[in-house]
């Protein structure tokens, strides 16, 4: 029996967006990357901007984002995704451009590019997946790793006296005049998934206005890197990551504020 036979006569209420390819995700069970990919591409499909959207994949677990996202894409060097996105947007100012980056990529090796891209107010969307660890290279300490958190390169727990504090780069970004919309979201519950999708929608709407950078942090998990089951990982994230990286809007455009909207 074919899948089409089995669904004959049934009403189609949900399917993979045409903006995702049929390549299965390589992500570990429970990882937030897949959900974030899907939401982003759903928004691109629903807004009808597939033909006008160019994405930049980072070096990190999502290096192969272009295997899944059915749009024109470029793969950047580690940390340079926002510089690559700047190059694209400057020569194609009418297109929608986004970069999609992990915490090592965006907040360690690419810190300068991140800050200066936003400071120039590049009209792009930066999606920042904060899982508190280097996933791709096997679970080393990230700039966002919490105090006391054990990783393969902080086997005794992150010690702030030796290595400094977890970097709240999104808070730094929010104070830059070039930032137009800055928010911190997550994908741990159905409600938060909906909120993140809304944030993606707004960002693409804002990109049309040419008013500055939209920056969305997604506090996420890394069950494999953290050595937990998906359920444990989400619980650990809620109990430990959320207090340090509280969800909610950090900067909303004035018009939004006047309407009293709060996405948090």
């Amino acid at each position: 029996m074919q899948i089409n036979d089995s669904i004959e006569g049934l009403e189609l209420v949900y399917q993979r967006p045409a903006t995702l390819t049929d390549t299965p995700f390589h992500y570990c069970p429970g990882c937030g990357h897949g959900v974030a990919h899907k939401l982003l591409m759903e928004v691109v499909e629903e807004m009808g901007i597939q033909e006008n959207t160019i994405g930049v994949a980072p070096v990190g677990c999502s290096v192969f984002a272009y295997h899944y996202m059915n749009i024109d894409m470029q793969e950047a060097a580690h940390g340079r995704a926002s510089a690559v996105a700047t190059g694209i947007k400057r020569v194609l100012p009418d297109k929608f451009v986004f970069s999609y980056q992990g915490d090592g990529d965006l907040a360690a090796i690419g810190t300068a590019e991140t800050i200066h891209t936003v400071n120039r107010g590049e009209n792009i969307l930066i999606v920042f997946i904060n899982n508190g660890i280097y996933g791709m290279t096997g679970g080393q300490m990230a700039p966002t790793t919490l105090i006391g958190q054990i990783t393969s390169t902080s086997p005794y727990g992150r010690d702030e006296k030796l290595i400094g504090y977890p970097l709240k780069i999104t808070d730094m970004i929010a104070i830059l005049p070039g930032a137009f919309y800055v928010t911190r979201q997550s994908v741990n519950t159905a409600g938060n998934v909906r909120k993140l999708k809304k944030a993606f929608q707004k960002s693409f709407e804002f990109q049309k206005l040419n008013k500055g950078t939209c920056f969305i942090e997604v506090v996420s998990n890394c069950p494999s890197g953290w050595g937990m089951t998906p359920v444990e990982a989400n619980k650990w994230m809620e109990e430990n990551m959320f207090p340090y990286y509280p969800l909610g809007d950090l900067k909303v455009p004035r018009t939004e504020k006047e309407k009293g909207s709060n996405n948090a």
């Binding site: 160019i54 930049v56 470029q74 950047a76 060097a77 340079r80 510089a83 690559v84 996105a85 700047t86 190059g87 694209i88 400057r90 020569v91 194609l92 300068a112 590019e113 200066h116």
Partner: peptide, 12 residues
């Protein structure tokens, strides 16, 4: 940053 902007813009 400059050379990576070149990458992006040339790729575009």
């Amino acid at each position: 940053a400059a050379i990576n902007m070149i990458y992006g813009a040339s790729g575009a």
